[in-house]
Design a protein around this nucleic acid. Structure first.
Lengths: 226, 226
DNA sequence: AGAAAATTAGACATCCTTGTCCAAATTGTC
DNA sequence: GACAATTTGGACAAGGATGTCTAATTTTCT
């Protein structure tokens, strides 16, 4: 009755761009300064917006913070699942394929700007907002790790791996490919491409020493039939 | 000339206890609230001391923060080296000994109160005080990881392990035994004893699948002589 | 062009925090 | 018991931040 066909949402429209700009700026500032240290004036300035506009869009510093976390969680989960879709289910060269996958995972999800921000926010404010991050925990690692575990189970079923517990395997895979990046993660530093590749290569190599099938494995299922 | 023989330092004495109480309280508050969110009044109250006393001992919020980090770094490094001294250089049962060592490492150094606090402080304020944490990085992982690597090299030399690069091995060992505690670490939660043991057990098992010497290894050196 | 909605800049009240000062009380030492 | 050092509580100034309000301006849609 009031508007044409409703492009996206009912009340405002195009200047949704400002909303995003505010959330983006808030991300950056909250992560740099922490919740208490973050300054709304600074966020407004960094978003290229007046302070009042920040209050118009999100009513409150705390509400703004929640919006930031939700947005980050969404983006990161989307990235993780997109990357998970590229898991090598039918590997040609298992080691090379897993390394490439590990690098994608790290680059797109963990070392990305969003990944770094989400990690930092969880680290700094996780204890203060348990319900908020419980949501992340459920939709994040609680969903993606089992999904990764399922991929490993499939590889094992196809005879490429010899594993016991797929969930343990998935967690150890992540632990191994990130083994050399722990300090950077703690300090909030973005590892270089070389570091990511190096850590992934070493990690996958060790992973396969532990879990690689002893047979060439490419057609183990047929062999068992013969 | 002024005092007897000087028990420890020249100016004050016994009420050094208050200094420690203040630093302890400051640790707790800084970690809970972050630097910006930490409140000197709260620190004073938690230390059972008046605010003025806090300012008498350490002149400044920032100086107090530095004192906290130094103290934490010292304590944690002491703990790590003490634990490193218990590394199983002549293992009877390699798997059991490594698991026990991993559990000690985690319990005493990483999941301890001090370890948790230091980790949190590095995570939250590491970017803001690079020089302060550069010191930690050097004396912490920069010193302890090579020391751990040396122990693994020794195990390999004695025929208990088959490894290529001891430094990589050491980092992967740490990554594996902590693989299942990552989320707890990020959230600042203290893992339970069972979780620590579980993660260590699974981690060591995988570690040995990858790096365990193929021979029984207990007397490989003699064998090679024969 | 004209109307409605959103944005802006600035002033403003309020609250909180840091850090200082000081006089009185407490503590510890000889 | 007396003296020196330390601690205490409270008052205090200065600064900074949040969140509100308002009038003017800009943007957007029809």
């Amino acid at each position: 009755m009031s508007q044409t066909i409703a492009a996206d949402n009912f009340p405002p429209r195009g200047h949704e761009a400002k909303r995003v700009a505010i959330v983006d700026a808030a991300m950056s500032v909250f992560c740099r300064e922490g919740f208490a240290g973050a300054n709304i004036d600074l966020i407004a300035a960094e978003a290229g917006v007046s302070r009042q506009t920040v209050y118009n869009h999100h009513g409150d510093k705390e509400k703004l913070f929640v919006a930031v976390v939700r947005e980050l969680t969404e983006r990161c989960n989307a990235g993780i699942f997109a990357t998970l879709a590229t898991f090598p289910d039918q590997p040609k060269d298992l080691e090379a394929d897993l390394v490439a996958y590990a690098v994608r995972m790290n680059r797109n999800c963990i070392c990305s700007r969003d990944g770094k921000f989400l990690r930092k926010l969880i680290q700094t404010e996780g204890e203060r907002y348990p319900e908020l991050f419980a949501e992340w925990r459920e939709n994040g690692p609680g969903t993606t790790l089992p999904a990764l575990a399922a991929r490993f189970a499939r590889l094992a079923f196809a005879g490429h791996l010899a594993i016991d517990d797929p969930d343990v395997t998935a967690r150890q895979f992540v632990g191994l490919i990130n083994a050399e990046l722990q300090i950077e993660f703690m300090m909030g530093i973005q590892p270089s491409q070389e570091e990511v590749l190096q850590s992934a290569t070493n990690g996958v190599r060790t992973f396969l020493k532990a879990y690689g099938a002893r047979q060439p494995a490419s057609r183990l299922r047929e062999t068992s039939l013969a």
